[in-house]
């Protein structure tokens, strides 16, 4: 009796995992039984056709990855832009009045240089202001409209303005996805950059780093660590959303369903294949990212996963 208890206590987490797995498999089997139990899964269809779907999914992986990388550059730029402080029009006018008064009280330098300086600073702050507002607008529009509509819009844009490329579905698709993910990643990057403590920038500036170098060597390495999880989320989301590209004529799993088989035939087999392929990719990805996070974790920061040596327990429950 005691031995049995000890056995259970030592291997409790295996039971735990086994139980969780059993529940998941059980519910899957139940759903399977509800859907196809009466007629059985057409295994011959799966073995015959899975390369077709694998090929389609890899088109997605390829489109998603290019779009994601391009979107990252776009997102970082817009995100950084959106952390910039802009001077409001009222403040700018006020500082101009102060400047003018001081000049009148104690004139120095020529009138021409003064005028030139005013025009230059107006240009600088004005450009900054406008560019920043465009960034804000971009993010709001991308977040506020459906991806499906954005893809159709990109397609119409090409048909009207660049008809020679209008049949390049994959190109249009990648552009649409890149702009879309750029908008979302802008927010991810902005959050990451703003989370890095301002003291870090101050310290970098104090030893002579320029703004750009402080970004490169101090802020970005810290911000990137923070945004690995939301970026992964965004990649997986984009990957799944890339199935929308079928509307552009890109061969994807959904278009096979629609064109080749129709919903009456082997539709559950198709879903089974697609589900397994997608899960295999996303689960692999999340393992890779977990490894990345462990690799780049800053020692002493955040909550560390405690690995206890064999036989050591944090607390014993009961006797």
């Amino acid at each position: 009796m005691t031995n049995w208890r000890k056995f259970l206590r030592d291997r409790w987490r295996y039971f735990d995992a086994a139980l969780a797995l059993a529940v998941i498999i059980g519910s899957l089997v139940y759903i399977y039984d509800l859907l196809v139990g009466s007629r059985g899964l057409d295994v011959a269809y799966i073995t015959r056709n899975y390369p077709l779907y694998l090929h389609a999914v890899f088109t997605n992986v390829y489109a998603t990855t290019i779009a994601f990388v391009v979107g990252m550059a776009l997102g970082f730029s817009v995100g950084w832009l959106r952390t910039a402080r802009t001077v409001s029009v009222a403040k700018f006018a006020a500082s101009m009045r102060v400047e003018k008064r001081e000049r009148q009280e104690a004139p120095s330098g020529s009138e021409v240089t003064r005028r030139l300086l005013v025009v230059l600073s107006l240009l600088w702050y004005g450009t900054k202001y406008v560019v920043r507002r465009i960034g804000d607008g971009f993010v709001e529009i991308i977040r506020g409209t459906p991806l499906y509509v954005q893809i159709l819009f990109a397609s119409s844009f090409f048909i009207v303005f660049l008809p020679q490329y209008a049949s390049e579905g994959i190109l249009i698709g990648i552009i649409a996805l890149a702009i879309n993910t750029g908008g979302y990643q802008a927010e991810i990057f902005r959050a990451g950059l703003q989370t890095v403590h301002s003291g870090q920038v101050e310290a970098a500036r104090a030893i002579g780093f320029s703004r750009l170098k402080a970004m490169r060597y101090v802020i970005l390495p810290q911000a990137l660590r923070l945004i690995i999880p939301p970026l992964t989320n965004e990649y997986i989301g984009l990957f799944k959303a890339s199935t929308f590209l079928f509307v552009l004529g890109v061969q994807s799993e959904i278009s096979y369903i629609a064109q080749h088989e129709g919903f009456a035939g082997d539709v559950f087999e198709i879903f089974a294949i697609v589900t397994v392929i997608f899960l295999a990719i996303t689960v692999t990805l999340s393992f890779v990212v977990q490894a990345l996070e462990r690799r780049f974790r800053i020692p002493g920061l955040g909550i560390e996963q405690v690995k206890l040596p064999r036989g050591v327990r944090i607390a014993r429950v009961g006797g």
């Binding site: 003291g199 870090q200 101050e202 310290a203 104090a206 101090v218 810290q222």
Partner: peptide, 13 residues
């Protein structure tokens, strides 16, 4: 001129 801060501000990474 070197500067030392109240909150150290060492680069955490």
């Amino acid at each position: 001129v070197g500067m030392v801060f109240q909150s150290f501000n060492l680069f955490t990474h």
